[in-house]
């Protein structure tokens, strides 16, 4: 049996002395899309930071492809095929689009491959090669960030709040690309607030609350509970 592509076992982690994650258990099977949902401050982004090596867990285990990789540096994981598109535009604003694309070659893909693929997927970026990335529109910036995920053939893709601050139509376009990647068999972990959109592409979903994964299940079931979690309906007042 193939081991899960990504597994977190009782992971505790945080910033300084304060723990944000109090024992997170999470499994991403190869070739599937998992949506990680939950309100702000629940620890979703911290979970991704642990999985990408940016934060070392203070307890528990991080396994990738069945191998424990606690303590691995983010650049080492990146070269091993773990690709995180962080929240809020994963781009270098003071580099040009072309230079941003060039930065994608550090995980092992050749420059010509990366640029061909990136400009083919997002022709709008091709037109703006010489432009500073910081001067692109929000949607174009997110496309540039996504281009790294799509052009470098990662083994594991993690997307943090892809839709934040973007117009619905652009969000749909981006999720169209995610769906294509998923159809191609890529394993994807998505953290999102726009639950409805994600649940459309996800194979399974997990809800995170107060630093723990409280519920895992098929998207349809999770969707029911989400409204309550977000808008505070039926969840009762403070006791």
């Amino acid at each position: 049996m193939t081991p899960p592509l990504l597994e977190l076992r009782g992971v505790r982690a945080g910033y300084g002395i304060i723990d944000v994650l109090h024992g997170v258990d999470l499994i991403l099977e190869p070739g599937t899309v998992l949506a990680l949902l939950g309100p702000n401050g629940a620890g979703k982004s911290t979970t991704l930071a642990v999985a990408s090596g940016q934060i070392q867990p203070s307890g528990g285990q991080l396994l990738i492809g069945g191998r424990e990789v606690n303590g691995a540096k983010p650049d080492a994981l990146a070269r091993a095929g773990v690709c995180l598109v962080p929240e809020g535009r994963g781009i270098f604003p003071n580099l040009t689009v072309a230079e941003n694309v060039r930065m994608m070659t550090f995980s092992g893909t050749s420059y010509s491959d990366v640029s061909d693929r990136a400009y083919e997927l997002f022709p709008r970026l091709g037109e703006r090669r010489k432009q500073l990335a910081g001067t692109l529109s929000g949607g174009e910036q997110q496309m540039l960030a996504m281009a790294r995920a799509m052009a470098t053939n990662p083994a594991l893709l993690m997307l943090d709040e892809l839709s934040m601050g973007l117009a619905p139509i652009i969000v749909e376009e981006l999720y169209g690309q995610v769906a294509q990647l998923a159809a191609g068999g890529l394993s994807i972990l998505i953290v999102e607030q726009f639950a409805q959109t994600v649940l459309g592409v996800a194979d399974s979903a997990a809800i995170m609350l107060h630093g723990r994964v409280t519920r895992t299940g098929p998207p349809a079931e999770i969707a029911e509970e989400l409204t309550a979690a977000y808008l505070g309906i039926e969840s009762g007042g403070p006791s």
């Binding site: 749909e172 607030q193 726009f194 639950a195 409805q196 994600v198 989400l226 409204t227 808008l231 505070g232």
Partner: peptide, 16 residues
């Protein structure tokens, strides 16, 4: 607010 459709779609995305 809880029953406002615009609010729901703002929070839950375009689908609902």
């Amino acid at each position: 607010i809880q029953n406002d459709p615009a609010v729901r779609s703002a929070y839950l995305g375009t689908g609902s």
